[in-house]
Nucleic acid binder design. Structure first.
Ligand SMILES: [Mn+2]
Ligand SMILES: [Mn+2]
Ligand SMILES: [Zn+2]
Ligand SMILES: [Zn+2]
Lengths: 138, 138
DNA sequence: CAAATAAATGCACTTCTGTTGCACACTTGT
DNA sequence: ACAAGTGTGCAACAGAAGTGCATTTATTTG
C-alpha cells in the first residue's frame, strides 16, 4: 500500500485515494484495461475522474496506452524503471481473439526495422492477434 | 477504366458507378484513406453508401483496413494478387507525425515473432510512426 | 417488353468512446 | 484562517462507427 503511494509520488503524481485504488486495480489485473472496464469496476466514481486519472498516469509514465486494434484504448502499468518512450523499451502486445484480452509481453521487444531512405521512425506499435495461452489450453 | 470494372468483377463486387469512382479515388491516392476523408471528396454521395462500399471492398479483398493508432480506420487498395489474410503478405504501415498520412510499405513484410508457449498468432499489425520521406525533405 | 426479384443507395437515427467546460470540494502552504 | 492550487463530479459535446427501413436502380424471369 505504501509502495503504491511511493511509486506515484516518485512519478510526480499526488497519491489521492482514488488514484491509489485505480493503481491497485491495474496492478491486480494481468491484462490491459479500458476506461469503460474501469468504469464498471468503480461504479461510484465518475467517468471523467477515471479518464483524467489515466491521462495523468500516462503523462507521468505510470501507465502506457495500448492500441490493440479494437478501437478501444487500453492501459497497463509500466514496468518499474521502464522508459516507454525509448525504442529499446517498446514491447509487443498480444490480443486474444477468443477472450478479447490484451496483454503486455514486456520481455518481447519490437525488433528493429529497416525503413526506406527518408523515413525516420520515432515510435512503433506491434500487436499480434490470435489465441492466448489461457484460451489455447496449453 | 475497364480495368477497374474487371478488377471489381474478379473479386465478386458489382462495378457500380459509385464503386468505380471510389476505387479510382483510392488508386490515385498514395496514402491510406479514412471514411471521413472520402466523404469530403464525394460530397454528393451519402456517408452510408461510402461506408458500405468500403466494407464490401474489404470483405471481397479489394482493400485492406489499416489501424494506424489514430483511432480512425483507414483503407488502402490491396496489391493485385495479395492475400492480406496470410501472414506472409502482412506488410507494415508508416504513420507520419508531421503530415498525418499513413502509407503502406508493401515490400516490408512483418518479421516473424517468436511467442511464448501457448500463444498462437493468427494476425499481426505493425505500425511505425515518425517522419515520412516527403516531410523529412530527403 | 413487363413484372418480379434482388441489389445498391439515401435518410434518419442510435450507440459508443473520447473529450472539454465549469462549478464545487478538497488539500496544501503561508 | 485564508488563499491558491489541485482533484472530483456533473453536464454536455464531438467524432466515428454502425443499423433499420424506405426508395431507387439493376438484374432476372415470364
Ligand atoms: Mn504493454
Ligand atoms: Mn497496407
Ligand atoms: Zn484468450
Ligand atoms: Zn509526412
Amino acid at each position: 500500500m505504501k509502495e503504491i503511494e511511493q511509486r506515484l509520488t516518485e512519478n510526480g503524481v499526488r497519491p489521492t485515494a482514488m488514484r491509489i485504488l485505480i493503481y491497485k486495480y491495474l496492478a491486480e489485473k494481468e491484462a490491459a484495461t479500458s476506461l469503460t472496464h474501469i468504469e464498471t469496476a468503480f461504479a461510484k466514481a465518475d467517468r471523467t475522474t477515471l479518464y483524467r486519472t489515466l491521462k495523468t498516469f500516462e503523462d507521468k509514465g505510470v501507465v502506457h496506452q495500448i492500441d490493440d486494434g479494437t478501437g478501444i484504448q487500453k492501459y497497463a502499468l509500466c514496468e518499474t524503471g521502464c522508459n516507454c518512450e525509448l525504442e529499446q523499451d517498446l514491447h509487443l502486445h498480444f490480443h486474444c481473439n477468443n477472450c478479447n484480452e490484451t496483454i503486455c509481453l514486456t520481455e518481447h521487444k519490437i525488433p528493429h526495422i529497416n525503413l526506406p531512405d527518408g523515413y525516420v521512425a520515432e515510435d512503433a506499435n506491434l500487436v499480434l492477434k490470435g489465441i492466448c495461452e489461457k484460451c489455447s489450453g496449453k
